[in-house]
Nucleic acid binder design. Structure first.
Length: 60
DNA sequence: CTAATTAT
DNA sequence: ATAATTAG
């Protein structure tokens, strides 16, 4: 799932709230059916990669 | 602890 | 191979 929709996430490295497009998005579903969405991001400031929770209603 | 993904 | 990510 490659996305273009910007999301507001907190960059853990710079501790800044930023609106960026996730590089990759995937869903975690445990054996009990609980789902969460994770985005893989690259911080434009540090170039560091990080993962963050996405809003449940996020679409690419 | 589990799930999926991928950078390290 | 392991960390990181969330929530219950």
């Amino acid at each position: 799932m490659v996305c273009r929709t910007p999301v507001k996430v907190k960059d853990p490295t710079s501790h800044l709230e930023m609106v960026i497009v996730p590089e990759k998005v995937y869903v975690l579903r445990n054996h009990r059916g609980k789902e969460i969405k994770i985005g893989l991001f690259v911080s434009p400031r540090t170039g560091k990669k990080f993962r963050a929770l996405l809003p449940d209603a996020y679409q690419c």
